[in-house]
């Protein structure tokens, strides 16, 4: 694992909440300009891993972002370095309008956010219709779109996505992942996506890691993992 190929390098990452340890020494990397998937069942530690990267939980171990350590930085400082994080539950500012949600996404960027907003409306035309509406009144799918758009407003170098398919109807999920493909192609952002729905994630990912009870049990190219017999049986269900 080297800085040249991996934008984010994580080395022997331990983390937990209070006395409960959740992660027991993870080593992984997020490929530059591509999608890396973190798979695993409920409670495997996927969300905690993302929180650890964003400085939301106490950790030990090393996290290098573009070769520089970011562990120990405040969450807002990590965001300011170009790490956008769509948390579990999407983190929508329910009381604020769609426009204000997007403006907040660009908080760390000086200058007029409107051109970026227009670009987001290119990906998500529905958001344009809902521009002045309170974000809490949006449907689940629309809120997920808003969350991704909000994160992209930061011009992130690394985008962390926590379960983008969670709680959405399959049709909506397909729509969102189709848009995500466009975004990946157009923006060149490196993405770390966490998913329970392994087949979806493997379809867009370049590399993947499989997490079980806080440990990485398998890693490799997404294409290889997709072919793996054991993974297929336990996570892909066919």
């Amino acid at each position: 694992m080297d800085t040249e190929n991996f934008l984010l390098q994580v080395k022997s990452l331990h983390a937990g909440y209070g006395p409960t340890r959740v992660l027991h020494g993870l080593d992984f990397g997020v490929v530059r300009g591509g999608v890396t998937a973190l798979l695993g069942a409920n409670g495997a530690g996927k969300t905690t891993t993302l929180r650890a990267i964003s400085g939301m939980v106490r950790i030990s171990g090393e996290i290098l972002f573009d070769g520089t350590p970011i562990s120990g930085l405040a969450t807002e400082a990590i965001a300011a370095r170009g790490v956008a994080h769509v948390p579990d539950g999407r983190g929508t500012f329910m009381e604020l309008s769609v426009e204000e949600n997007l403006r907040l996404g660009a908080y760390t960027k000086r200058g007029d956010p409107r051109p970026d907003m227009e670009r987001m409306f290119g990906y998500f035309p529905k958001l344009k219709q809902r521009f002045r509406q309170q974000a809490g009144t949006l449907s689940g799918g629309e809120q997920q779109m808003l969350a991704i758009a909000r994160a992209l407003m930061l011009h992130p170098r690394l985008l962390l996505l926590d379960e983008p398919s969670f709680g959405l109807a399959p049709l909506i999920v397909r729509e969102i992942f189709a848009i995500m493909r466009q975004i990946i192609a157009a923006e060149g952002t490196s993405i770390l996506v966490v998913e329970q729905n392994a087949s979806l994630a493997l379809a867009i990912a370049e590399r993947a890691y499989l997490l079980e009870t806080g440990r990485i049990v398998m890693s490799g190219l997404a294409a290889d993992i997709r072919k793996d017999e054991a993974v297929r049986r336990s996570y892909l269900g066919y």
Partner: peptide
């Protein structure tokens, strides 16, 4: 922008930190 960030911090501190609001 500051006023918006203050409102956001009041409503949803976790998301606010994630978009870089101190």
């Amino acid at each position: 922008r500051l006023g918006l960030a203050m409102r956001a911090a009041a409503f949803n501190p976790i998301s606010s930190r994630l978009v870089g609001v101190p």
